[in-house]
């Protein structure tokens, strides 16, 4: 049950955690009111959606794929959830619908990638645009505003002083960390991402892994869509347009290799906090928000370079031992 199949978080993850630590110290010193209970609560609330989606994105990227359509899936599901709220459906049923519709959209991505053998980056670029158009059509020229506050408890309710979404995020990470580290499924995902051909020879159905990872990501985006509605109380036309960049950035900064086969959820969570704390701190310091994008971009490039250098060193070592 608890036999570890994949390596525990290593040096790369600790580096990101260290980075978050440095960031927190920096903003505590230079940004007034950064280190206050209300601000930290806000950071947690605003990072919850990103954190949940990043679990799925980590799986997809480790399996050698990528998904650019997460923002569009979020948009479509948010519109569905918004309309379901207006219809007055049971909240539990709505959450179920949200997860299911996300799952279906993710499955479509995965199925095209696996069965038609088209690179995930191309497939999801296409579905991203289709999703944007779909949101536009579904909203039909008007925003969804004035939604009854069915899910407001998610943002207002607190347990032991921490918002309830914090516990949801923690629970999800615990569940997926377990599945990922201690169940065969996790090992298969790594195997497919490292080398699909040898995974196939080892008897792993790599197509099912691709479909499963994309579907899980979709389902998680469905949960995030409910959180989005709880936080925003409305659905705008451009819902989720910035999301793919942020999600992929968090995962990469968290140490997952874009080439697949390497990464961990611990690193991803650190990456998520790094990005949300950065966004928050920048505003509190009064720096124009435009800088945020360039800082995140620089960090992605640094992470990628770091990974390539590390990989080369590992390969060199291997050669020397042979």
């Amino acid at each position: 049950m608890f036999k570890s199949y994949v390596p525990k978080p290593g040096r790369r993850e600790y580096f990101t955690i260290l980075l978050v630590g440095v960031e927190i110290i920096f903003f505590s010193l230079f940004a007034d009111n950064f280190l206050t209970a209300s601000n930290l609560t806000q950071i947690i609330q605003n990072s919850a959606e990103l954190a949940i989606i990043c679990i799925g994105m980590t799986l997809v990227i480790i399996a050698g794929g990528i998904d650019l359509s997460v923002g569009s899936i979020l948009g479509v599901v948010a519109v569905i959830v918004g309309n379901a709220i207006l219809l007055g459906l049971n909240p539990i049923l709505i959450v179920f619908i949200a997860i299911l519709s996300g799952l279906v959209l993710g499955f479509v991505n995965g199925a095209i990638v696996a069965w038609l053998r088209i690179p995930a980056i191309i497939v999801t670029l296409a579905t991203m645009n289709i999703g944007k158009a779909l949101v536009f059509m579904l909203l039909g020229g008007a925003w969804l505003t004035g939604l009854p506050p069915v899910f407001n408890g998610l943002t207002t309710y607190k347990i032991l002083g921490l918002p309830v979404v914090f516990y949801i995020v923690l629970f999800m990470y615990a569940v997926f960390y377990y599945i990922f580290t201690y169940r065969p499924f996790g090992r298969h995902v790594y195997a497919v991402g490292t080398n699909p051909e040898s995974a196939k020879l080892a008897g792993i159905n790599h197509k099912m892994i691709q479909i499963a990872t994309h579907s899980i990501l979709g389902g998680l985006v469905g949960i995030a869509a409910v959180m989005y509605i709880a936080r925003m109380g409305s659905v705008e036309m451009t819902v989720g347009h910035d999301l793919p960049l942020q999600v992929i950035a968090a995962v990469i900064i968290g140490g997952t290799a874009i080439t697949g086969g390497r990464g961990s959820l611990v690193g991803t969570l650190a990456g998520v906090f790094f990005i949300t704390i950065m966004k928050n701190g920048i505003v509190i310091m009064g720096i124009p928000s435009l800088w945020e994008n360039s800082i995140i971009g620089t960090l992605i490039l640094l992470s990628l370079t770091f990974d390539i250098v590390m990989q080369k060193r590992v390969e060199k070592k291997k050669l020397m031992t042979v």
Binding site: N46, Y228, H241, D242, N280, V283, S289
Partner: peptide
């Protein structure tokens, strides 16, 4: 975007 306005 409204979402960005919320956090700002």
């Amino acid at each position: 975007s409204s979402e960005s306005a919320l956090t700002e």
